[in-house]
Amino acid sequence: MPLFQAIIERRNPPLALNGATVIAASLGLTLSSKIVVPFDPVPFTTQTLVVVGLGLALGRRRALVAVLLYLMQGAVGLPVFAETPEKGIGIDYMLGPTGGYLVGYLLAVLVAGSLGERGWRKPASAAAAALLASAVVYIPRLFWLGTVIGWFKPVLALGLYPFFLGDVVKAMLVVLLFTVTGRTFGSGRS
């Protein structure tokens, strides 16, 4: 059985393989943050695609640990976030306009991972899971953005409308990537 498929299907991988998977996932999340389309107040990146994909592919526990590792790396000052170090690093960056996204990634991997573990793995149900996981990012995203830039500014115009279509496309890409590669979403619990 190929190593990648063993990781995805969670067939009792050894602890070292789980650790390597989590580290690789956090590095993938870092790489996805560096694919940036500048936008104000927060940039477009492929992070949502990767976060949702990690949840579906790895399950909620391993995906959550990978996102937590990514956030810890950023908190200690490693330039893992979008537009870092140019726009700051560490906790200061995390408390800026993108902080809500970072919190939302935790919710998204929990939703995607939980639904994937419950059998939402076929293309149609995986697409629904990816859309739901992408949508939960908006809850802390909009609340945080309103808190940082002020509620009298057009929070929806800055934090929802420009990103909505892109997030739908990214959610569909998650499903397409697994369908095209012939991989199925993992079975069992992580």
Rank of each mutant, 00 (worst) to 15 (best):
F81C: 07
G104V: 06
L110C: 00
S114R: 12
G88V: 05
A171C: 03
S32G: 14
V50F: 12
G159W: 11
P79D: 11
G74H: 04
M94I: 14
G150T: 10
S187K: 14
L131M: 14
P43Y: 06
V22R: 05
F163W: 07
A66F: 02
F152I: 08
A129V: 08
T84H: 03
G116W: 04
D92K: 12
L3S: 11
P2T: 13
A133H: 14
G28S: 08
V65A: 15
K34W: 14
G53P: 02
G99M: 02
L78S: 05
G100H: 02
G116D: 04
I91G: 08
A129D: 06
F163M: 07
D92Y: 01
T48N: 03
L156P: 01
E86V: 11
A133D: 11
F163T: 03
A63F: 05
V168L: 14
G96A: 15
F163S: 11
L131I: 15
R61C: 01
A75R: 02
Y138D: 03
V76N: 03
D167A: 04
T21W: 02
V42N: 09
P140L: 08
L56Q: 12
I7E: 07
L58I: 12
L102R: 12
G150I: 12
K122W: 00
G90D: 11
Y161A: 13
V103R: 00
G88Q: 07
G150E: 08
R10C: 01
G28T: 07
A130Y: 11
T181I: 00
L69V: 15
R118Q: 14
G159F: 08
V22H: 08
P85T: 09
I91W: 14
A130I: 10
A25Q: 08
L142G: 04
V50Q: 10
L49Y: 15
Y138N: 07
V103T: 10
R118E: 10
A126L: 06
E86C: 00
